[in-house]
Amino acid sequence: MSQRKRSIITASLLATTLLAASPALLAGNHSSHHGDNQHDMTEMCDNMREGKGHFNKADRQEKMAEQREAMANRLKLSDEQREIWSEMHEEKRQQHEKRMGKWQKKMDERCAQSQK
């Protein structure tokens, strides 16, 4: 058998083996993750009610303001440009607040359902 035929057969066998094994590799045991999800949801609902972690609005806004100020300094913006910069970010923050209001309602409903 020539080298070329051997290479083609070997490549075909390798490709077939990889394709046959891929569903088995992708199909993991997800049942253990489901149990953790309920615990995570309870913890997330508690954090939301208490305003901790991601739900600490004041802390997050403070960090974002610091990041924006650092970026403005790196860009060497003038006073006029900084005003425009602040207005842009204020508009963005208001849009974000509107979206977060909708998300907050959904989270309240999910947390109420998980308590039942």
Rank of each mutant, 00 (worst) to 15 (best):
M1Y: 09
M1P: 01
M1D: 07
M1L: 10
S2M: 00
S2F: 05
Q3K: 07
R4H: 00
K5L: 09
K5Q: 04
R6M: 02
S7N: 04
I8C: 04
I8F: 08
I9F: 00
I9N: 07
T10G: 05
A11D: 00
S12P: 01
S12V: 11
L13C: 05
A15F: 00
A15N: 08
T16P: 04
L19V: 06
L19D: 02
L19T: 08
S22C: 05
P23L: 01
A24Q: 09
L25P: 07
L25R: 01
L26G: 05
A27S: 06
A27L: 08
A27N: 06
A27I: 06
G28H: 09
N29T: 06
N29M: 06
H30Y: 13
S31L: 02
S31Y: 11
S32Y: 12
S32N: 05
H34I: 13
H34L: 11
H34C: 11
G35S: 05
D36T: 10
N37C: 13
Q38E: 11
D40S: 06
T42H: 01
E43Y: 01
E43M: 00
E43I: 09
M44A: 02
C45H: 03
C45G: 02
D46Q: 11
D46Y: 07
N47Q: 04
M48P: 02
E50W: 07
E50C: 00
G51L: 01
G51R: 05
G51Y: 01
G53L: 08
F55G: 05
F55T: 08
N56A: 10
K57M: 12
K57C: 09
A58G: 00
A58K: 12
R60G: 09
Q61H: 15
Q61P: 01
E62P: 03
K63N: 10
M64Q: 10
A65S: 14
E66T: 11
E66N: 12
Q67I: 15
R68V: 09
R68F: 10
R68Q: 03
A72G: 00
N73C: 13
N73F: 13
K76Y: 10
K76S: 13
S78T: 06
D79I: 08
E80T: 08
E80V: 02
Q81H: 03
Q81P: 03
R82E: 01
R82S: 06
E83F: 03
I84G: 06
W85I: 07
W85A: 07
S86F: 03
S86K: 07
S86L: 00
M88Y: 11
H89E: 01
H89F: 04
E90P: 01
E91R: 13
K92Y: 09
K92E: 12
R93V: 02
R93H: 11
Q94T: 14
Q94R: 14
Q94K: 14
Q94Y: 12
Q94W: 12
Q95P: 06
Q95F: 13
H96P: 04
H96K: 15
K98F: 14
R99Y: 14
R99L: 12
M100T: 15
M100F: 13
M100H: 13
M100S: 03
G101I: 14
G101V: 13
W103Y: 15
K105I: 12
K105V: 14
M107Q: 11
E109F: 04
E109A: 11
C111A: 04
A112V: 02
Q113S: 12
Q113T: 15
Q113M: 13
Q113V: 14
S114V: 10
S114Q: 12
S114H: 10
